[in-house]
Nucleic acid binder design. Structure first.
Lengths: 148, 148
DNA sequence: GCTATATATTTGCTATAGCAAGTATTTGGT
DNA sequence: ACCAAATACTTGCTATAGCAAATATATAGC
């Protein structure tokens, strides 16, 4: 992986490969735990645990996913019995998505492992690094976002 | 997006959303250029431009992709006439993948735009930030990689 | 030279991802 | 109250992604 090239900074490939290995280790950890859930399904379950009854649009915005993608992920979490969909009373276009009892159990089963993975991933890095990390990631994000 | 939570550092979601927006803007730029190519196909074309005749395994390793994924990406770049596959003489299990004339033209057409995107993405960030960025990304990567 | 093992690639399966088009419902303007 | 535009969601299409099993070829150990 070349680091420099006529002054331009290459960042995409580093971000890509880091994201891939994170995903792989999450998947492996969930498999080891014996929970049939993917990382993207976990993101939704985690989001609902902290705020239950979100609409699919809210879930999409919160997880930076496409509405179509969220629609399909929730198809699967519902099939697996982690979530339930109900039409919103006040706006019949919307669903409200809720965690089931099983969904909450899965959350509690997985959460400690997620914390361990986060600590493992950040090992050797400091609080200052975290500030830098957030600033750099948010800057790149905004540089593209603001151009939209 | 919560930044802290009982001391553990959340990094996956930031990396994920940044990677997504990068990909989207690359895709849009390629569409605007009128070139029918995806970001992942671009990665392969770029790699071959710098070292032609790589095997699929080498391309997979260099781009942190799965061999199956690379196999399918190259199916598409061959269909589109950007690349060609030939069986290696010395090892008939392998292919050697080469850029075609069209593939090289596509590279030259796209490269300036890619440089612009890189500069745009890094705007507001310094050379020191780049060192931090590389160190942090590589540390997270290694923290997981070394556990394998 | 044979056989077990390793390597390179493909194919099938499932999931994520984004775009575009379609449906249903709601909202805003008049 | 009515109609146009906006919003929420789904579905079809194509591409990326990883795992596992299958095929073909190469290599190592004997």
């Amino acid at each position: 992986m070349t680091t420099h090239q006529n002054g331009t900074k290459i960042f995409g490939s580093h971000i890509d490969r880091t994201m891939k290995i994170i995903r792989q280790h999450y998947m492996q950890a969930f498999r080891d735990l014996g929970v049939d859930i993917t990382t993207e399904q976990w993101v939704i379950v985690d989001s609902l645990f902290h705020q239950d009854g979100q609409s699919q649009t809210e879930l999409a915005d919160g997880s930076f996913k496409n509405m179509a993608t969220v629609s399909r992920i929730i198809d699967l979490t519902c099939q697996k019995g982690f979530t339930e969909r109900f039409r919103s009373e006040s706006d019949k276009r919307r669903y409200r998505v809720f965690l089931t009892k099983k969904g909450k159990e899965v959350y509690h089963k997985i959460k400690p492992t997620v914390d361990q993975l986060r600590q493992k991933g950040w090992k050797g890095l400091s609080d200052e690094d975290y500030d830098d990390f957030l600033r750099i990631m948010n800057t790149i994000f905004s540089n593209f976002k603001e151009a939209e």
